[in-house]
Amino acid sequence: MKKQIAIIAEHHKESVVSATFEAVSFALELSNLTEAKPVIIVLGKSIKEMAENLSKKTGLDVVGIEGGPLEFYNAEQYKFTLKYYLESIDPEYICMTHTAMGLDLAPGLATRLDASCITAVEGIKSQDGKISFLRSMFGGKLRAEIMPKLKKSVITILPGAWKAQELDPMENGHVDIKAAPSSISTSRTITVKEAEEETLNLDDAEVIVAAGRGIGNEENLHLVKDLAKIFNKSAIGASKAVCDLGWLGYKHQIGMTGRTVSPRLYIACGISGSSQHISGMKDSQIVVSINIDPNAAIFNVSHYCIVEDLATFIPVLLEEFRNFVGTT
C-alpha cells in the first residue's frame, strides 16, 4: 500500500473549522514531496454530512469514525480511537492544526504511536530526500529546522502558515464511515461553553490600537486610548498578556483565544508578535508597530515599523497628529 498522510479534521457544532483546510494544503505540499497519499479522518457523533462535504471539497478520501463518546473532542477518546484505526493504515505522517485541540492531542498521540512530534510547523524543507519541518522559537525571533527521527511523525500546523485552497476536484473522494470501538476513559468532556457575551464592537472599527505588555503599567493605557481617539471608528485591542494582568478586560483580547479582526489599520503598541496574537490580526490592511526591540517578531507582519520606547514616542506622535489636524 502507498504511504499515507492522515489529516485529523477539527469541527465545532457539526461544521469543519477552516484551519482544517489549511492542514489539507500542508498535506498536499508534503504529498508532492514524499508521494504519500493524504486521507482525511473525522471523528464525531454524527459526521456523515461533514465527511461527504470534505470529500467533495478536497477530492480526498475521507474516513469517518462515529460514536457517542466522540460528541465532543476529548484527548483520551481521540487517542484511543485513532490508535485503533491508524494501526490499519500505518501513515507516515499524521497532521492536524495547532489549535487548542491539536496541541492537546498531538504530543500524547505521538507518544502512544511511537512517533516523532513536531508542533506549530510553518514550513517544510526537503533535502536529499529527507524531510524536515520549520517552526518558530523564542517568540518568533528564531526559526528552527527539526527533523523527525522515527518512521512516523505527528505534526501540528500553525494556523495561517498555509492558505486554504479552492481545490475544485474533478471527483469526490471515497467516504467510509466506521463505528468507533468502545472504550472506557479516565476523562470525559461534558460540554463546550460559549464565550461570554461581547459588548465591544471590534468588527466595525476601522482602526484598532492594541496594547501589549510593553505599555509597562496600567497608567500608560491612556497613551493607547488617546491614540485611538485620533481616529474615527476606532477601538482598543489588547494582547492576552494585558488582559491576564487585568489592565483591560478579555473582551479586548485579539488572537487565537480572543477575537479575530481585520481593520483598515492596526497599531500594535508594545506587542511582541507571538503567533497566537498574530493569528487574530494578520488580515489587517495596514499594520503599524511600535516596539523598543528591533528584533521583535511583530515587525515580521508589520508594514511600518517604529523602534521606539512607546512611553516617550506616543506623546510625540499625538502632538504631531494634533498639529496635522490643526493645519488641515
Binding site: Y73, D104, T189, I190, K193, A195, Q253, T257
Partner: peptide, 15 residues
C-alpha cells in the same frame, strides 16, 4: 475548563 478558540471553554472531568 480549557480555554479554546474565540474565548470558548471546553469543560471536562478527569480522574
Amino acid at each position: 475548563e480549557r480555554e479554546i478558540e474565540g474565548g470558548k471553554r471546553e469543560c471536562l472531568n478527569l480522574q
